[in-house]
Amino acid sequence: MLNIRLAQVVRDVSRRLRDKPWGNIARSTGLKTLHLINIACAAHLFVEHVGWVAGPSMLPTMSVTGESVLENRMVSPENLQRGDLVTITSPLNPTRIVCKRILGLPGDVICVDPTGTLAPSTEHVLVPKNHIWLSGDNAAFSRDSRTYGPVSMALVRGRLVARVWPPSKFTVFRNNFNFID
């Protein structure tokens, strides 16, 4: 009696499973996952090209952690100016992105290290074509052009536009470079 009932249940379930439109279900789930991946890609592209950068150590311009800045990725190398804050891919490690200030443009003659700690204070360098000289604002704790020399403009990712987080410290980074006559 029980056996017959069990067999009936099994037959019933198997028929129901067989009658389901499996092809349609597979197609619609596939399409849904593709849409999800597409949305994830869109979000990634937004974050990469429009979005935020967590603040690296650029004391006193930026604190060590907990700050976000807006970055302009569409900056052309000719429009870079001395004093601009830029993000570059580190020439020492391709997985690291660092933030520095531009000190010299192509053709400038730059004193490598006026304090004389990393290089003799008399050593001067001519910045070559399509290269820039970078420096961190916190000279004592910064690895910049003093260690790796002039950096190719092809490594520049973008220019910092404004600090947007925390909201109380919102600032637009304007060029504050002054010539001394």
Binding site: P77, P128, K129, N130, H131, S152, M153, A154
Partner: peptide, 13 residues
């Protein structure tokens, strides 16, 4: 070593 790669020229990007 030995790989053929595409890179941005440092002198003119």
């Amino acid at each position: 070593r030995g790989d053929i790669v595409a890179l941005q020229s440092p002198t003119d990007s």
